[in-house]
Amino acid sequence: MLSEPDVQVSNPRSRALLLSALYSAQEQYGWLSPEAIQHVADQLELTPGQVHSTASFYSMFKLQPGGQYLLQVCEGLSCYLLDGADTLVAQIQKHLGIAPGETTPDGKFSLQIVQCIAACDYAPAIRVNDDLHGHITPESLDELLAQLSAQEEGAEHV
């Protein structure tokens, strides 16, 4: 006869805190490192596997370390129609020498392509960490990148 598998039965109400616990851990550790995942699992009495399976489903959870500034360029239709999207990605790529998914060697910038961020009235739109920047032009993007490059380590907001 097979023995009972060792299944951890978790409290559904405590698991409901998982997304917010992942946000907190991401803030604290910078990304969801294996230690961060373990920490969250311990907090909520879940297995690291349960935590990882949820974390990996969502694009805002970082399972890899990234730069101080995460540049998210919207490639949605409305941003594309107003010359955003690919044009802005190409400009950032040229300016910083990184492709989508990459981080600059100094750890300052990461580049990510995202889908419509519900800011089509501000198209073309990008996000820098949690801040929205709208009506982006090649000039304003250059300015923004220069401004961010000049920021001291730890100063999060422009």
Binding site: L17, L18, L19, L22, L44, T54, Y58, S59, M60, F61
Partner: peptide
């Protein structure tokens, strides 16, 4: 939420609210 279009579908949203994919 944490960046998943499908979580706008009401039952996927409930799953997400319970801490699942």
């Amino acid at each position: 939420g944490a960046g998943a279009y499908i979580c706008g579908e009401e039952t996927a949203m409930l799953e997400s609210m319970e801490g699942k994919p």
